[in-house]
Simulated assay, not measured.
Amino acid sequence: MTMMSLNRIHIPVVSDSRGSLAFIEQGGAVPFVPSSVWLASVPSRFDGCGAVVALRGSVTVGGSLTIGDPSEGVLFSDGCDIVVSSGGVALVVGADVSGGIG
């Protein structure tokens, strides 16, 4: 049985009088080339490696890490199950299949 790798990350946030903007970019908190983006609002399974951010509500990743703020995220390296709270929305950024979390 392979152990799933989950790592909590900090997502940069820029705030001004209009509100706050959290952003994900290669070379920052995400050590891979983002190649796809999904919005998840129901329990989902994502394969490969990527990152998850809770945009609204809370998100439990891999059954063990729960996040609930756009300034925090979770990197996963071997696929994971994502469970979004009722009314919640998660942003999932997938990595290029040739990339990986190093």
Rank of each mutant, 00 (worst) to 15 (best):
S20N: 11
S64E: 15
T60K: 10
C80T: 15
E72K: 04
R8L: 15
V61Q: 01
P31C: 10
V53K: 01
P31L: 05
G28D: 13
D78E: 15
V74Y: 08
P12D: 13
C80K: 05
V13E: 15
A40V: 15
S58H: 06
M4C: 03
I101R: 09
L91E: 03
S77D: 11
E25H: 10
E25S: 13
P34V: 11
G68W: 10
V92H: 02
I67L: 14
G87D: 12
D16E: 09
V74F: 06
S35C: 02
Q26P: 06
G63R: 12
H10S: 14
F32K: 00
G28E: 15
G87A: 11
G73C: 12
E25Y: 08
S41A: 10
A54S: 14
R8Q: 14
D16T: 05
V93D: 06
S36E: 04
P70E: 04
V37N: 00
F32W: 07
V37H: 00
H10N: 12
L55W: 01
V53G: 06
T66N: 01
S35L: 06
D81P: 00
F76P: 03
V93K: 02
A54E: 12
E25C: 09
A90F: 10
D16L: 05
I101M: 14
P31E: 03
G62H: 09
F46S: 01
F32P: 04
G27S: 09
S5C: 02
V14C: 05
G28C: 14
T66E: 10
P12Q: 13
L75M: 04
V53D: 00
A54W: 09
G62P: 12
V61R: 06
G57M: 11
G19W: 07
W38G: 00
R56D: 06
V14E: 01
S64A: 02
V13T: 15
D96S: 10
G50T: 07
V92K: 01
G62W: 04
S71K: 13
G73Y: 09
A22D: 11
V89L: 11
P31R: 09
G88D: 03
E72C: 09
T2A: 13
I11W: 02
G99K: 03
G19H: 02
G68L: 15
G57Y: 06
V97N: 02
S58T: 14
V97Q: 05
V84W: 01
S36N: 07
I101G: 09
G62V: 12
G48N: 05
G63Q: 14
G50K: 09
A29V: 13
V14G: 01
A40N: 05
G48F: 04
A51P: 06
S35I: 00
A40I: 13
G87Y: 04
D96E: 12
G99M: 06
G62K: 08
V42H: 12
V61C: 11
A40W: 02
L39K: 11
G87Q: 06
D78M: 06
V92W: 00
D96Y: 00
W38D: 08
R45P: 01
R8N: 11
S64W: 00
V83Y: 05
D16G: 13
V13K: 04
I82N: 07
V83K: 07
A51Y: 00
V52N: 09
A54I: 08
V59I: 11
L55D: 01
D16I: 05
M4G: 11
V84T: 08
V37T: 00
A90M: 05
